[in-house]
Simulated scan of single mutants.
Amino acid sequence: MHEPRDLIDAMRRVNTAARIAELDGEDFTSEIQQLHALADRLDALAVDDIRMQASLWHDDLAERMAENLTAGPKGRINRALEVGIAGFFPYSPYVGTLNPIAPPIDFATVVVGDRAEVHATHTFEAIMNGPPGGVHGGVVAGVFDELLGCTCVVNDVSGFTGTLSIRYASLTPLGVPITMRGWVDRVEGRKTFATGTFHHGETLCATAEGIFIGPRTAT
C-alpha cells in the first residue's frame, strides 16, 4: 500500500519534467485524459474546511496544538526536533511534503543556546526559474517568509508577517546547493525580529529581515 506522499512525489516529478520538456509535436491525448481522471478522483476526496498549512481539518489542528505546542519555547523546540518542521506544516507551499507545488525544502531545527535556528540546504530545480540560470526572486522571497516564519514558530514567538525586506546580493543559482539559515534577533512585545541568509558556497545570495506580529492577548 502506498503512502500519501508517494502520489504527491509523482505529481511533483510530472511538474518538474514538464517544465523542461519540448512539448510541441507530441501527442499527449491519452496522458491528458488520465490526468483529468486523476483530478476527478481527487476532487471527490476534497475536504471542505478552512485551508491551513498544518492540517486539512481544523479540529485536528486544534487538538494537536493543545497536545504538543503549549509547553513554551523548549517544548516547541523539542517537538520540532521530533517531527521536523514539515511535520508541523505538511501542506506548506515550500516545505510541505503533501503539497505538490512544494519543492519541498527540508528545514531543520538547530538548537543554539536557549533559542533555535532553522537551517536547510536545497537545490532548486528549473520549475523555480526566474532570471537565466537563477531562482525567481519571488520564490526567494517566499522561501524567506517561510524560513523566518518557521524560525518564529519553533521559538514559540509565532505571528503573522508584518514586514519582510529582501536584499538580493547576487544570483541564487539553480542546480546547486543553496544553504539557508534563519534566526530570531530579538522580541519586543508582540513583535519578533528575525533574520535569514541564502548562500551558495561562500557567496552570499540574499538576506532577509522580517518583523512578525503576534496575536493580541485576550483581556
Rank of each mutant, 00 (worst) to 15 (best):
I178F: 02
A169P: 02
I166V: 14
L174G: 01
D145S: 12
V153T: 13
T163M: 01
L147P: 07
G162F: 00
C152T: 14
L148K: 10
P173K: 00
A126F: 11
H136K: 08
G138M: 12
T151F: 09
T163P: 01
N155A: 05
T172E: 02
L164C: 03
T179R: 14
T163G: 06
G130D: 00
G175I: 07
I178P: 02
E125M: 09
T179I: 02
T172I: 09
L174A: 02
G138F: 12
E125A: 12
V157M: 10
L164F: 01
M128Q: 15
G134D: 00
T151P: 05
G142F: 08
A126N: 09
S170V: 03
D156I: 05
T163I: 05
T179Y: 01
C152S: 13
P173R: 01
L147M: 09
V153D: 04
F144V: 01
A169G: 01
V176F: 03
V153M: 13
V140A: 13
G137I: 10
G149V: 06
S165G: 10
A126E: 11
L148P: 03
G175Q: 07
V157Q: 07
G130H: 08
V154D: 04
H136Q: 14
P132G: 11
C152K: 08
F160I: 12
T161E: 01
M128A: 14
D156G: 03
